[in-house]
Amino acid sequence: MWHLYLPIAGHSISIPLIFILGGFVGLLSGIFGVGGGFLMTPLLIMMGIPPTVAAASDSNQIVAASTSGTLAHYRMGNVDFKMGIYLLIGGVVGGTGGVWIIKILRAMGNADFLITVTYVLMLGFVGGYMFLESLQGIRSKAHELPPVIKKESRYARLIKKLPGQTHFEKSGIEVSIFMPIVLGGIVGILAAIMGVGGGFIMVPVMVYLLRMPMHVVVGTSLFQILFTCVNVTIMQASTNHTVDFILALILLLGSTLGVQLGAKISKKLGGDQLKILLAILVLLVMVKMLFSLLLPPDILLAYKGGH
């Protein structure tokens, strides 16, 4: 009675285990505004779910978790819908472009190597930078040092000169509308090439390149992820038949609860604390990827698909 059969995955699975897994990944989503596919997909594969089904069903459950999370963050006033929509426009265009780029790269050969190495380096760079930057922030607060007034950087001056400057009320910033569209596009391309949702790249982009406050970043990221995953779920279900709704349902029962709890935890943590925790998570994912690249695998054959 504690097992359910997954008709699309072609495998039965323990209900409590999947529920707990959904809850845990939902918690991370609520705290950091990431989809959690980087963690969920490999864990589902370890449980015997085919890679393509694991990735597609995870997208289906993220629809629920990100709806629940967006709602929770919205109530706290942490969703910048305007910014989210511009990022989304860029993301959809970039995602479509990314699919074409990956086809060209694959045709040229050795694309997988290039992608994986870029992914690891990028995770390392983003995680490392975020870790050091937020550590500095926490330290300066702990010693009650006055905030260092930095000279306006060349980057800040450059983005102020861009045309189409718009005020984003929720984020409290003024940037060109082309910024979120172009950055959303770049993240979309990267996400499509690497086969991940993009939350991991989008969150640092919003923090460091759009200079949005961390709490608004988490809510806005979840809002954006919601639309990306609606698109992925319908596309995967209609073209590849890889969405296992039973699997998604058990996962989402856990994740929708987890994400609510995560949103509350997120609210209680300071911006720097959130950033440093996310930085640690990003670095852990990088170390895990690095290990999987360096250690000889148990089996030297694998099925196609997955993250």
Binding site: N60, V63, A64, S68, L71, T233, A248, V259, Q260
Partner: peptide, 12 residues
Amino acid sequence: ATLIALGAGLLT
């Protein structure tokens, strides 16, 4: 599948 997920998210 998408609508049920949306509904479950909203409900929670």
